[in-house]
């Protein structure tokens, strides 16, 4: 081969340079367009029109919209957004294009109903989405579970939750805990244990990363809440027995009220405040806790999610 070496070298260098440059610029373009992109996508909001435009490739288009929904929520959630206006239409389009995409319904159950910044704050639309899902997949017990979950967690409507769980137990192959949940609703609604069971079930019934991370965060928060309640009891008991507040955790241990210095799920010891309150050392690491926060605590602009690994 004796092609001109100069041309070869020049072209190779230029090629690499252009490749690099185009990637950089593409990245910039993405930054300029984050908001605009989805706005444009949703110029066509009618699933029926989209179905026709997909020329029979609805499955593929559903996958595309599903990815868009996940990306949309993920990006906004990272930014601690208060508005998730496009999540509902994106999920509705996804499920209209592919009514059997169960993970999309599960995603909706987890993130459509809760209040911002943890979700879109649209429990009604979430319920509507789940009913549509059940209508199309009546044999999937997970959907009943997810619908009951919304009623329980977001609507605090335990009667409806019980009814949905009950409906779910009738499905063939339904997980046995559906029966337990249905029973639990009547007696133990509002219990930490019930909540823990629900979140655990959510975690176990999906592979979707964001849903699982969300469930883990809730389970960790429940653990903290339970620990703090337990410790607070110990402090109260100590006070009742000795007439003064414990000076430190070790005095609680010494008094035989605790088996050891208690630690939170991250291994940090809980703090005993001078006024006898129990506090978490790193409240920012537990976005959903209801107990153990310092006085006047405000959640950070960017909530932290521990990864599953």
């Amino acid at each position: 081969m004796r092609a001109s070496r100069r041309v070869t070298i020049t072209a190779s260098v230029l090629l690499l340079g252009c490749m690099l440059g185009s990637a950089v610029l593409l990245h910039r373009v993405d930054q300029v367009r984050t908001g605009a992109t989805l706005q444009e996508i949703l110029y066509i909001t009618s699933p029926n029109v989209l179905k026709r435009m997909s020329l029979g490739y609805e499955g593929l288009l559903a996958d595309v919209y599903w990815t868009r929904a996940v990306q949309y929520f993920g990006r906004k959630h990272m930014a601690y957004s208060q508005h998730y206006d496009l999540l509902a239409p994106l999920l509705e389009i996804t499920t209209a294009l592919d009514p059997h995409l169960v993970v999309a319904y599960q995603f909706g159950a987890s993130f459509l109903a809760p209040h911002p910044p943890n979700g879109a704050g649209m429990p009604e639309r979430a319920i509507h989405l789940m009913e549509y899902g059940i209508q199309n997949n009546p044999d999937d017990w997970k959907l009943y579970y997810n619908l009951g979950f919304i009623y329980y967690m977001d609507k605090k409507d335990y009667a409806s939750a019980a009814e949905v769980f009950e409906r779910g137990t009738k499905v063939a192959n339904a997980h046995p805990f559906m029966k337990i949940l249905a029973a639990q609703m009547a007696q133990h609604a509002g219990d930490l244990q019930t909540a823990r069971m629900l979140w655990l079930a959510t975690y176990q019934t999906t592979q979707e990363k964001q849903i699982r991370a969300n469930a883990v965060a809730h389970l960790r928060a429940l653990q903290v809440d339970e620990d703090v309640m337990h410790l607070q009891d110990a402090v109260t008991q100590y006070g009742r027995r000795t007439g003064h507040l414990p000076s430190s955790m070790s005095s609680l241990v010494a008094a035989g009220m605790l088996r050891g210095i208690p630690v939170d799920p991250d291994g940090h010891p809980y703090k005993l405040m001078p006024d006898g309150r129990i506090e978490v050392r790193q409240p920012d690491d537990f976005p959903f806790i209801e107990k153990g926060m310092p006085l006047g605590y405000k959640p950070p602009a960017k909530p932290k999610f521990k990864s599953l690994e």
């Binding site: 092609a3 001109s4 041309v7 070869t8 072209a11 190779s12 230029l14 090629l15 252009c18 490749m19 440059g21 185009s22 610029l25 593409l26 910039r28 373009v29 300029v32 367009r33």
Partner: peptide
């Protein structure tokens, strides 16, 4: 967006052209 798009498209086209030159050469 106009600037970035211009830059991107021109660089991309140049990249493909360089590839064509390399092969053809």
């Amino acid at each position: 967006l106009i600037w970035y798009n211009t830059g991107y498209a021109l660089l991309y086209a140049a990249m493909a052209l360089c590839g064509a030159v390399l092969i053809f050469e």
